[in-house]
Computed example of a mutant assay.
Amino acid sequence: MKLGIFMVLFGGRPLEEALDYVASKGIQAVEIGTGGNPGNAHCKPEELLENKTKLTEFKRAVQSRGLTISALSCHGNPLHPQKALAQADHDDFVKSVLLAEQLEVPVVNTFSGCPGDHEDAKYPNWPVAPWPNDYQDILKWQWENKVIPYWTEWGKFAAEHHVKIGLELHGGFSVHTPGTLLKLREAAGEVVGANLDPSHMWWQGIDPVEAVKILGHENAIHHFHAKDTTIDPVNVNKWGITDMQTYDKMMDRAWQFRTVGYGHDLKTWADIISALRLVGYDYVVSIEHEDGLMSVEEGFTKAVGNLKQVLIEDSAADMWWL
């Protein structure tokens, strides 16, 4: 496995300065934002697709520092019921796939999106309860009319361009659990897989080790994010896991994102890494830092230090003791 970083963390720095910094910390791979919520501070796909010189310079900037690109990421909502918003995120996805092919990057990360509850809706509707029965009707309509048709069509597009889709299992979107990912994968094909982030598993009450096993059994992990979560034992009893308070209310929230090792101990992270190796995932572990208690540099540095203690980098040895 390689240690990576989601470079949007350093979007305020010029690309080459940011690459120098992460390489100096022992990072081996970078995940680059190409639109949507991550933005495109370091990489504007339309410019690189239209200008071979800029494309070559971009490749050289990464490769000359001994780095590889693990994924291009354009997390957005291409199923948004407001057509202009959906189109913008869809366009980012399409350009990201085309650029990934040119860069020989195997994965584009995004969200599944979440539709509204009918054709003329204005806002996404995320059903999370089976009753009242209205929610079941909404869920059925969304999957049959929006989620499956979109990803079946654009999954084929990605496959034609030799790119896999890594959907982040994130609350608020139609695909947010291992089960919903596999449901979509069954319909849209193996080009669809997970960008698995343990932080979103923990707050939904899912054990990330078991999520790795469930998805890994189907060879459905295309990319991996390293981010932690802590659950407040008092506040979770007040607000539940679907706490809608904003992330800055850290004293009051039921859960919050932490940097690696500050939500769960390194034994837990070692178990996750070992589970990844067990199911055959031997790609990048990409740090995502969204810890409200730490600076960008400190949260990143601590995540690097903690992961280096548990990351399994070499190929497995023969079982010599047998």
Score class of each variant (00 low, 15 high):
248 D>N: 14
276 L>F: 07
261 G>L: 08
252 D>E: 14
276 L>M: 13
240 G>E: 04
291 D>F: 02
298 E>T: 10
232 D>S: 00
239 W>G: 02
297 E>I: 06
288 E>V: 12
274 S>A: 15
240 G>A: 05
272 I>S: 09
248 D>W: 13
287 I>Q: 03
238 K>N: 04
298 E>W: 03
275 A>T: 06
294 M>K: 04
249 K>Q: 15
235 N>S: 01
251 M>Y: 07
295 S>G: 04
294 M>G: 00
231 I>Q: 05
291 D>I: 02
237 N>Q: 13
261 G>M: 09
297 E>L: 04
236 V>D: 00
237 N>A: 07
261 G>D: 08
290 E>Y: 05
269 W>Q: 12
240 G>T: 04
267 K>S: 14
263 G>M: 03
288 E>T: 12
296 V>R: 08
282 D>L: 11
242 T>F: 08
237 N>R: 12
286 S>I: 11
304 V>I: 12
233 P>R: 01
244 M>L: 09
235 N>H: 01
232 D>V: 00
275 A>I: 07
304 V>R: 10
240 G>K: 04
260 V>P: 03
257 F>N: 04
285 V>Q: 08
296 V>T: 10
245 Q>H: 14
254 A>G: 03
283 Y>R: 15
239 W>L: 07
278 L>G: 04
283 Y>E: 15
297 E>G: 02
244 M>D: 08
238 K>M: 06
